[in-house]
């Protein structure tokens, strides 16, 4: 029997985690108190040392379910295994202070992700109006271009508190991570929908913090 770790939350929010959420291998999630941090874990008999799609989905789905029930959660990278709960507590006790700061300063926030596919480049002719999403993706396509400094945040407005951008699948698309207040999800979706150039995108969330799990200079 091994303790598998999915994510971290403030222990004061542990009451928001229901008992029926299933994780990797179908095992039920539970919260292990580690001082002011609560660790979202399940007990697994067969540790997932291989990243199958099913296990990756189960990891993410468990976190999404907890977020759905109102908790603010920092995701933990796939495959974090501990001999038992005491071993887990020892490791969480060494947790980077930036994670605790992120959970405290961003309590009540969620991460949204906007996944955009790259449309085929027109063969000839001048392009009509190019929105911020298209402009960003066009720059992604150019070999060697940096993704840093390019953002949708300004276009989406103050509903977005922080933004992180990842190129996807060899330039075929991009994932924009946006930190928002939980209650602003409808406004966020409306802001995305108001941008014609983002019409083909897929909005995911609310999610646990993947890109915003550690506090930075804010």
């Amino acid at each position: 029997m091994t303790t598998y770790l999915y994510g971290l939350l403030l222990d004061r929010n542990a009451h928001l985690v229901p008992a029926h959420i299933a994780g990797v291998g179908g095992a039920a999630l539970r919260v292990v108190a580690c001082d002011k941090i609560g660790a979202l874990v399940s007990t697994v008999t067969t540790p997932p040392r291989s990243a199958s799609i099913d296990d990756v989905r189960a990891h993410d789905h468990a976190l999404q379910s907890v977020v759905h029930h109102g908790a603010t959660v920092a995701s933990v990278r796939f495959g974090q295994l501990f001999a038992d709960d005491d071993d887990l507590r020892r490791w969480v006790g060494r947790l980077d202070a930036r994670v605790v700061r992120a959970l405290e300063s961003r309590d009540g926030c969620v991460e949204m992700r906007l996944v955009l596919a790259l449309e085929p480049r027109p063969a000839t002719g001048a392009q009509a109006h190019v929105g911020p999403g298209t402009a960003y993706l066009e720059q992604l396509r150019a070999p060697g271009d940096s993704v840093k400094g390019l953002a949708l945040r300004a276009a989406l407005g103050p509903v977005v508190l922080r933004e992180h951008v990842d190129p996807l699948a060899g330039g075929r698309g991009a994932a924009f991570s946006h930190l928002i207040r939980r209650q602003d999800e409808p406004a966020y979706r409306e802001a995305v929908a108001s941008q014609p150039s983002l019409a083909g995108g897929t909005v995911l969330g609310p999610l646990a913090f993947y890109s915003f799990a550690e506090a930075d200079d804010e």
Partner: peptide, 18 residues
Amino acid sequence: LVLSDLINRVLDKGVMIK
């Protein structure tokens, strides 16, 4: 692409305890 994003964030993002 959505599946790519799922794999990317679960395997490559989040807190590293160990």
